Computed example of a mutant assay.
Amino acid sequence: MQLPQIRMQSQMAQINILQTNASQEIQQPKASLSIEQPKAKVTIQTTPSKLQIDQTRAWEDMNLMHIFKRIEKYANEGIQGAHEGTARRVQQGDALMRIENKGNPISSQAVQNGFDHMKKLGIKFIPSMFAVKIDYQPSRLSIDVKVNKPIIRAEAHQPNYQFTPGNVEIGIRNYQSLKIDFENLFSQE
């Protein structure tokens, strides 16, 4: 005996999902940058130094002087000698006028006028101390610097941006199905 049978065969529905990812590109171009540095202006001013050496007195001390100075010196010495001679004669005349006073003015004046005084010995060709005069004026230096600021030019560029949106496609790969079969429903006996 065969029993009646019901056979069912089913298939579930299948969904198909197709996805494309989004893409994004960002590019940042470099900024344009320009820098200029103008040169600084430097001004330097100097006044030269001065050195003056006056050795006139040293030459005069060594008796090596200019002829005009020598004439002036000897003229002064002559005038001084004339004054000293006049003073000596006045003094001796006064002494002779008072001859009645004690003393012997004639013999003392004869000795005084008859012999030269002792000359002083010494080195005459060495100049005196600090005879050379030195005057020094140092140079002066002034520096003026004018600093120029740098010239900076910067230009920023916008970024290049590309975006491709993603996509999702949903569809049915297989539809659901149900098959029902019957066997041995009607017996044949």
Rank of each mutant, 00 (worst) to 15 (best):
K41C: 03
I71S: 09
Y136N: 09
M8E: 05
V42E: 00
E25R: 12
F115A: 09
V132S: 06
R98D: 11
T46Y: 03
Q27K: 09
Q9H: 06
F186P: 00
E183A: 11
N101F: 06
F182M: 10
I172F: 04
N167V: 07
A31H: 01
H157L: 12
D181M: 09
I99D: 04
M8G: 06
I53N: 06
R7K: 14
K149S: 14
I26H: 06
F186A: 06
K73P: 00
L3W: 02
S187M: 04
I123H: 02
F125R: 08
A156D: 14
S139P: 05
I126P: 00
K146P: 00
Y136H: 13
I35P: 01
Y74L: 13
Q14E: 15
H157N: 14
P150T: 08
E72R: 11
D181N: 14
A82P: 00
T46S: 10
K124T: 11
G171T: 13
I44R: 02
N174V: 04
F186R: 11
I152K: 06
S107R: 08
T43W: 02
V42R: 00
N160W: 04
F186M: 12
V111N: 03
W59I: 01
K73M: 14
G81L: 15
M8P: 00
D144N: 15
K133R: 14
A13Q: 15
S108V: 10
A95S: 13
D54W: 06
L33D: 01
Q11Y: 03
K146Q: 13
N167H: 08
V132C: 02
Q19P: 00
Q28S: 07
G85Q: 08
P29S: 11
P48D: 08
Q9L: 12
V42L: 11
D94N: 12
K50I: 07
H66R: 13
Q45S: 08
Q14P: 05
K69H: 08
I71L: 15
K69M: 03
A154H: 07
Q9A: 09
N101S: 12
I123G: 02
N167G: 02
